[in-house]
Simulated assay, not measured.
Amino acid sequence: MSHKTLLRTGPLVPGGVGPYGPVGPPGEGGLALPPHFTGRVVARSGAKVAGLTWHAAPDGGACFPDGSGWIYVSNSELPLLGGASAVRFRADGGIADAYRILSGTDLNRAGGATPWNTWLSCELGHRGRVFECDPYGARAARPRLAMGRFKHEAAACDPERGVIYMTEDEPDGCFYRFRPGDWGDLTEGTLEVLSSSGRWRPVPSPAALLKEARHQVEDARHFDRGHGCHYAGGVCYFTTRGDGGLWAYDAETATLERLGEGVRAITAAPSGDLYAAGTGTRIDLITPDRAVTPFLRLQGHDGAELTGLAFSPRGDRLYFSARRGRTEGLTFEVSGPFRA
């Protein structure tokens, strides 16, 4: 079943037991999972991971292929010291290395992966920037100023249309897309904003000092604190932190639908299932027929926010972080028989 089925078959329906069975008792780190799934803590803020001190306030994340292994990248939402770090995994899941890929930036909250295997780390601060980072640690990160200067949250690439969607964490934030002049090169391009009519309109001055991007287009549509963003199967899913909304923008038909409530972070599995984290310490599974069932719970972490949901390239491991404030943070890995 495809992601299109999810978009067009009616409202989300809360269910009982999910396709993997009931969630069991908590294990390592308070992680409660269905049968045949296992979990572990791979990183802890302030503790060493393969010689690297793992950052505080872990937030947005993504996975990248690395030969027979893979890499998980995580942002840090610290002021002035944010940046991003990476953990390199061997084929058997062992940790081979850990290193910084971005340093000295401000409030790096979310971001997104590109099809050419770079990481877009987004600054949340006033006039925040998007930095394109090398998850393999070989090249220095570069700011992509044509993508606008605003409170960036997340980014999601749409290779079919050659655009990158972006959310903005403001009470009257906008939903943007960036059209690079050359797909794969984000140095130059056109920043556009979704209007109330459903059309995309160019932002005249994406990096203007005096008039913020969200106020430059008169009929721009506004959202209450844009948050997570993920593109899959012709649909860009994004969330609004202010009102807990889950939205779906169908890029082929240029239509927008509000799917449900109470979601902050979201990712997709190869099966077409969505995995969504809300205001509590649990992750729900949303199947292509729009059934919503619990997938995991995290006990003993009251008040934590779950962030950085991402699947490994093979789709057999799910990563996420649990953060409380700007000091505590745990990064988890869940392994098991995820549907293909």
Rank of each mutant, 00 (worst) to 15 (best):
P65K: 12
P65S: 13
D66M: 09
D66H: 08
D66S: 14
G67M: 08
G67F: 09
G67V: 03
G67N: 01
S68W: 03
S68L: 09
S68Y: 10
S68R: 15
G69M: 09
G69H: 02
G69Y: 00
W70N: 10
W70E: 13
I71N: 01
I71D: 04
I71G: 00
I71A: 05
I71S: 07
Y72S: 03
V73W: 05
V73K: 06
S74I: 13
S74W: 08
S74M: 06
N75G: 07
N75C: 11
N75H: 03
N75Y: 04
S76F: 11
E77I: 00
L78W: 06
P79Q: 06
L80F: 13
L80T: 15
L80A: 15
L80K: 13
L81H: 05
L81R: 15
L81D: 15
L81N: 15
G82R: 06
G82K: 10
G82A: 10
G83M: 10
G83N: 03
G83A: 03
A84Y: 01
A84L: 09
A84R: 08
A86T: 11
V87D: 04
V87R: 00
V87I: 15
R88Y: 05
F89D: 04
F89Q: 07
F89Y: 02
F89M: 05
A91F: 07
A91N: 00
D92A: 02
D92I: 11
G93M: 01
G93C: 05
G93I: 02
G93A: 12
G93P: 02
G94V: 14
A96Q: 14
A96H: 07
A96F: 06
A96R: 15
A98V: 09
A98L: 09
Y99D: 10
Y99E: 08
R100A: 02
I101S: 07
I101Q: 11
G104C: 07
T105I: 00
T105L: 00
T105V: 05
L107G: 09
L107T: 15
R109P: 01
R109Q: 15
R109F: 14
A110L: 07
A110I: 07
A110C: 11
A110K: 08
G111C: 07
G111T: 01
G111D: 01
G111R: 04
G111N: 03
T114C: 06
T114H: 09
P115A: 04
P115D: 02
P115T: 05
N117T: 01
N117S: 08
T118S: 10
W119R: 00
W119C: 05
W119F: 13
S121W: 04
S121N: 05
S121H: 03
C122K: 00
E123K: 05
E123G: 09
E123S: 03
L124F: 10
G125H: 14
G125C: 13
H126I: 02
H126T: 06
R127D: 14
R127T: 00
G128H: 13
G128T: 12
G128S: 12
V130I: 15
F131Y: 15
